[in-house]
Design a protein around this nucleic acid. Structure first.
Lengths: 229, 229
DNA sequence: TAGATTGTTAATCGATTAACAATC
DNA sequence: TAGATTGTTAATCGATTAACAATC
């Protein structure tokens, strides 16, 4: 926060992991962690870790022989990730996924507060889901302003995604988490992050199958060269 | 599938989006889409699209003036993503998230079939969730083999994630979707994809706040230079 | 002191973009 | 034919990794 507010996207994506690890380490009683330890735990190289940390406002000096203080890492990362205060979130779409997210403990623990859940299905409106009730999308702009909602989550079927996004933008939301597979068109002052839930499963299957055919073909090659020998 | 089974990770990650778009276009009645159209719709450059498509077994010849056939794109992408047959999935963790995923229509539509849901909470075991019942983790290996489950989804609290992963690996699962924030350690014949659900929301907040402070500081600079002028 | 570890520079690697010949 | 668009090569850009001086 002190020396840079330019940070490459891949670095930002690793921040949450670093925080998670630092927290766990501190809670387990470790006062220090080195770049090698972090790298091993998170499947990175120590170089990457040190480059990433250099983007942070870590007060460290060169040449320490014990690495980074877990509590300092935790503090700086939490600040960088905006955890010094609660962030209000609205979820649009009270289907299975939207309702699950509204109740998901993992968000609250990281200081996200789901304070509104919208849907257009009259059967769902009024229903209590975890800490909130489902409300009509017609009330979206009003409630978002009143409740000081900062982030919107799009958890509706693909066909409604862009429409809902436009509503959120109309309500002056500047940050949107997209749970659908469709690409959302937004003005350039709005930030979108794709959660890639279904896409991840498809990516997984594709990569797994690809590795298997690779293995199969190398095995075949091996057998062949064995025969030739 | 024909000419390459080496594909860079970023390309694989875009495959699901291409498929989604091609499907929608075909259903809307378009017979052809060009790289420019795809790029515009998905927020990419036409160059990237053409590079990506070149990894696919598209039977096209150079110089067509109408782009790619939507039905051909759809077919090839579906095949590449392993959609020619159903894929059996097991979800571990019957909390809000696990239950929501078990019922999520988006998976079924893409030919993923959730055919097992595991949890250790005796209160949940036996409960019906969408098409399946919650079963004890003790039965995991047995059921995974019997039901020919190919992919596992880790939807448990952070503290149990590695343990559950080891169980899945013990049951010979070679592809794991990780819904937690912790990094999963797996042998190198196992593929893991991180779904980054909570991490995405944290990433979103971080990026949004960063853009705002940038805008604020440039606005300040602008005001300053105005004063000086 | 010797060993360990950071911060940073430079080298490498890989992905994206630009450009354009081929051609429908 | 003129215009459009692909497939592919080369250029650019950016991220990751290696290396090492500084120093605790």
């Amino acid at each position: 926060v002190i020396h840079v507010n330019e940070m490459p996207d891949p670095v930002i994506r690793r921040l949450a992991q670093y925080l998670e690890f630092a927290q766990n380490e501190r809670e387990a009683g470790s006062e220090w962690v080195s770049s090698v330890q972090i790298a091993d735990a998170l499947g990175l190289t120590p170089s990457t870790v040190r480059q990433d940390v250099s983007h942070l406002a870590i007060s460290g000096t060169i040449g320490r022989t014990r690495g980074y203080r877990t509590d300092e890492l935790e503090e700086v990362l939490a600040k960088e990730l905006g955890m010094e205060r609660e962030t209000n979130v609205a979820i649009v779409g009270a289907g299975d996924l939207g309702r699950a997210l509204a109740r998901h403990g993992g968000f609250l623990r990281r200081r996200f507060k789901v304070c509104a859940l919208f849907d257009n299905n009259p059967r769902l409106i009024g229903q209590k889901v975890g800490p909130v009730s489902v409300r009509s999308m017609k009330q979206m702009a009003e409630i978002i302003t009143k409740e000081r909602v900062e982030l919107g989550v799009v958890a509706v079927p693909e066909g409604a995604a862009q429409q809902v996004t436009d509503l959120l933008i109309g309500a002056r939301i500047k940050g949107i988490l997209n749970l659908t597979l469709v690409h959302l068109a937004v003005p350039k002052d709005v930030t979108v992050v794709d959660a890639r839930l279904v896409a991840s499963l498809q990516e997984l299957l594709c990569r797994k199958r690809m590795r298997e055919t690779q293995r199969a073909s190398t095995a075949k090659q091996r057998r062949r060269s064995k025969c030739e020998a």
